[in-house]
């Protein structure tokens, strides 16, 4: 034999998919919501998305260069973080703030923990929270969507309208996304289309989204009305960031538990905290806080939820 043979440990075949493919699939899944954001909020939305994405990419490249690590900005993970952060920003945000957000997401949210796969908290939500605390006014500068159909309190989000003025936004507007809010969170339709794609490609499972949405919805239905069982169930499911959070943020594999039952506990926790903040808390919306809080619990959940252990045979000793 003159040729050289490759020798390695089994298995000798692998699936074609890899991490960059997964990440770019997530980017594809975010396209419908991106289109919706431009449709409802104009080109300002696309500027915000571009700024956060580029800022995330550049920050990642700089940090990896400084740490003498291989630069992996083309694996798509920073792009996903950038887009998701943009989706969590209000349309009225100054662009420099959005750029700062992208840098915060990658530097504090991701690279400080060691890069892809090592972060405890969802990087985009870390950045959003830091921005929210640092610039509370700019971060709640809601501008109305272009086709606003009802005239009540046009500058608020549906959840603010409910909390402060007890106004229920029509469900049709909520479903399509014709309401005020963060640029990527308003259109339930677009988000669901994207999530279906991810489900189909098996990048996410139903466990977290289902338990998250169901828990939040049911709790709001139970306690969200004037009396028990009178809360607006569908309104709470469609309003605010619940769908964006449950479908795209909480399903981030890095920051959620590994086992299926663990993921369900995680989803239930997220849903419960969201409902608690929405109904009893100060701010109108609690999705991002709930995910961040549960992110912190993910390692603990993993520690206690183990695959079912089989009966053990006593070994001779």
């Amino acid at each position: 034999m003159s040729q050289k043979l490759v020798v390695s440990v089994s298995p000798h075949i692998r699936i074609k998919g890899n991490i960059p493919r997964m990440m770019w699939d997530v980017v594809i899944a975010l396209v419908p919501a991106t289109i919706a954001s431009v449709y409802f909020f104009g080109f300002k939305a696309i500027y915000i998305i571009l700024v956060t994405t580029f800022s995330a990419l550049i920050t990642e490249a700089i940090i990896q260069k400084l740490c003498k690590k291989p630069v992996t900005i083309f694996d798509g993970s920073a792009v996903v973080t950038g887009i998701l952060l943009a989706f969590n920003l209000p349309p009225g945000i100054p662009l420099w703030m959005a750029g700062a957000g992208g840098a915060i997401a990658i530097s504090i949210g991701k690279q400080a923990f060691g890069g892809l796969g090592h972060n405890i908290f969802n990087p985009a939500l870390v950045a959003r929270t830091i921005l929210l605390i640092s610039f509370p006014v700019a971060m709640t500068a809601w501008s109305p969507p272009r086709f606003i159909s009802f005239d009540a309190l046009t500058y608020a989000t549906p959840l603010t309208a409910l909390k402060e003025n007890s106004i229920l936004t029509p469900l049709k507007d909520l479903f399509l996304g014709n309401v005020g809010g963060c640029i990527g969170e308003t259109s339930a339709l677009a988000l669901i289309i994207g999530a279906l794609y991810l489900l189909l490609r098996k990048h996410i499972t139903w466990h977290i989204p289902f338990t998250f949405i169901a828990t939040a919805g049911i709790l709001c239905w139970l306690f969200g009305g004037a009396e028990l069982f009178r809360g607006p169930f569908l309104f709470h499911v469609l309003a605010g960031g619940l769908l964006l959070g449950a479908l795209f943020m909480a399903t981030d594999p890095v920051t959620s538990p590994t086992s299926r039952s663990g993921r369900m506990i995680f989803g239930i926790g997220c849903g419960a905290i969201t409902a608690l903040i929405r109904l009893k808390g100060g701010p109108p919306e609690g999705v991002s806080f709930s995910i961040l809080l549960m992110n912190a619990f993910a390692p603990l959940i993993d520690r206690f939820i183990r695959p079912r252990k089989k009966a053990r045979v006593k070994r001779g000793k």
Partner: peptide, 19 residues
């Protein structure tokens, strides 16, 4: 090789229920 992103596909397919 890249770093693990904890996608837990290995856990889902493992026939002997280990991690």
């Amino acid at each position: 090789e890249r770093s693990c992103i904890r996608c837990s596909r290995c856990v889902d397919v493992c026939p002997v229920d280990i991690l």
